[in-house]
């Protein structure tokens, strides 16, 4: 096709850029500038008041990597992200398939599923913090009244059980969004495939593994990438429920970063942690997308 035919006259040529301008402005001001500032700060000597004194040092990174607890924080972040996404994807696929079926009160059920996602993260975190409280928590009260236990259980008493509960809460708030993303993917699959498979004598499992999951794969991929980033960056649940205690054993990168900046007053090290976190996410994104591209082209 002749290029001259496609060329638009005058200001119309810049129409696309004009439409993009508000988004680009927002991204520049609220994402790009802070990112560059953080990267700059991470390579700078920063005073306790947060003033950049000089640029061109790796001291912040050395300091962070030297912290005995930092490897644990990285492991926590990876475990937190992977487990939440994996558990959530299994539950969400199941729920999406169920919600895709016709049944009585389906609409109300779908709406109810949205509640945990629509509620503010901070409120959800507070509710769970108090529900799991050792002294006055409603979960303990429920267990005791139902006769399942005789003494209160210290759910948040040690690092391992506290972290397990954090993951539970993470799954609780991740499942609704994931389910609805996958449900929209399921609804785009033509019923013709299922009808043809039924005629050919395919059972439920055949349809699930040979029609539903393969055709749902693009939606699953998007959901996984989005939720990995969301979980990795999640702050409010860990900060509210355990605050990273005991001794950072339940910290993730985001809460450790916050502690480093606002409890310890080391802004340079906090910036270095954010850059390290960015690199970890970058590596994940590149590897995941490459694997997906290879599988799709294979």
């Amino acid at each position: 096709m002749d290029a001259r035919i496609r060329k638009k006259p005058g200001i119309a040529r810049f129409e696309a850029y004009l439409w993009m301008l508000p988004t680009l402005t927002l991204v520049s001001v609220f994402v790009l500038f802070p990112v560059l500032e953080s990267v700059y700060m991470s390579f700078s000597k920063v005073s306790k008041a947060g003033i950049i004194k000089s640029f061109g040092t790796l001291d912040n990174f050395r300091y962070v990597l030297k912290q005995p607890v930092f490897p644990r924080v990285i492991v926590n972040t990876v475990v937190w992200t992977v487990l939440i996404v994996l558990i959530s994807i299994v539950i969400s696929i199941t729920l999406a398939i169920v919600l895709n079926e016709r049944f009585h009160l389906r609409r109300i059920t779908r709406t109810m599923l949205l509640f945990p996602w629509a509620t503010s993260g901070f409120i959800t975190a507070c509710v769970w913090k108090y529900a799991l409280d050792y002294q006055y928590g409603s979960v303990n009260a429920l267990l005791i009244r139902s006769g399942l236990v005789k003494k209160n259980i210290n759910f948040l008493g040690n690092a391992d059980s506290a972290f397990a509960w954090l993951i539970f809460v993470g799954v609780f708030v991740t499942v609704p969004f994931m389910t609805f993303t996958l449900l929209s993917g399921l609804q785009s699959i033509s019923v013709d495939y299922y009808e043809a498979a039924t005629i050919d004598g395919a059972g439920f499992w055949d349809k699930l593994f040979k029609i539903t999951l393969p055709l749902l794969r693009p939606a699953i991929n998007v959901t996984i990438v989005l939720n990995v980033i969301y979980c990795f960056n999640s702050f409010v649940f860990v900060h509210t429920i355990t605050g990273g205690t005991p001794a950072h054993r339940t910290d993730t990168i985001m809460t450790y970063l916050y502690w480093m900046a606002f409890s310890k007053g080391n802004y340079g090290a906090a910036a270095a942690i954010s850059v390290i976190g960015f690199i970890v996410l970058l590596i994940f994104s590149v590897i995941y997308m490459n694997v997906q591209m290879k599988e799709e082209t294979a």
Partner: peptide, 24 residues
Amino acid sequence: KKTLALLLALIMALSLAACGGAPA
């Protein structure tokens, strides 16, 4: 599409780095 998806993921990942640094 894949390149676009990768770019999108990277931009979202960038938001983490924006969380460091001086307080808001």
